[in-house]
Design a protein around this nucleic acid. Structure first.
Length: 207
DNA sequence: TGCCAGGCCGGGT
DNA sequence: ACCCGGCATGGC
């Protein structure tokens, strides 16, 4: 929690995830798997231009067209398939209705999302927290890197271990989880790359 | 020019 | 239960 406040002093509330709608956030969560966000933006722009950022329109288009449009995001064939799996899931279980989907409580919905081929723990938690406003914590490469750098983690711990570390120590509050993860990503980008700029890092006192 | 980025899956030990 | 290769683009 002290770490959070140190980051908060620097970055404030983030109210994070680049995306105009919950559906856009979910698509972005799949497209950004092991991929720079700048590349995802291009793919999202393509889908937006073609008015395809809805469950209904994406349901109708072919895999090959979808793959062509998301090409800049990399891994476009496999990601087209993963988006397709997710869209199929959304329609078969919830009639393509996000409200219905997010009507399911956190843990059951998380388990259902994990059954979709192409959605792993981080993608599921990103969808739940940033599209569904449910209080789950997102663990990603930045989380591992930053907290390993500051010796709170070794970095090779299981996803679930790290997640429960945060959810266990922090008050259960989706706004807090949202902010915190966003701040971790920011401090990771700013200070925890290959050559760490630890002098001015807001977490410097905790090194 | 090569390395890297907000993972995940499937097959092999 | 791990470990590894495959998947692909754009930016530096």
């Amino acid at each position: 929690m002290k770490i959070y406040w140190a980051l908060f002093r620097r970055y404030g509330h983030r109210h994070w995830w680049p995306g105009d709608t919950p559906f856009e956030v979910m698509v972005g969560a799949i497209l950004t798997q092991n991929t720079a966000w700048s590349n995802v933006e291009k793919a999202i722009r393509n889908l937006k231009r073609e008015k395809l950022l809805t469950p209904r329109s994406l349901k109708k288009i072919s895999d090959s067209r979808l793959a062509r449009l998301i090409r800049p995001a990399g891994y476009f064939n496999i990601k087209a398939k993963r988006l397709r799996n997710f869209i199929d899931f959304l329609w078969s279980r919830f009639d393509g209705d996000l409200k219905k989907m997010f009507g399911v409580p956190l843990e059951p919905l998380r388990n259902q999302l994990l059954e979709v081929n192409g959605i792993g723990e981080e993608t599921a938690d990103s969808i739940l927290l940033y599209a569904g406003e449910k209080s789950t914590f997102v663990v990603d490469a930045y989380t591992r890197r930053v907290f390993a750098r500051h010796r709170y983690l070794r970095g090779d711990e299981d996803y679930g271990i790290i997640r429960s570390l945060f959810t266990g120590l922090l008050p259960k509050n989706k706004g807090l989880y949202n902010d915190y993860h966003a701040q971790i990503v920011q401090v990771g980008k700013d200070y925890c790359r290959k050559t760490p700029l630890c002098e001015t890092c807001p977490l410097n006192p905790y090194l």
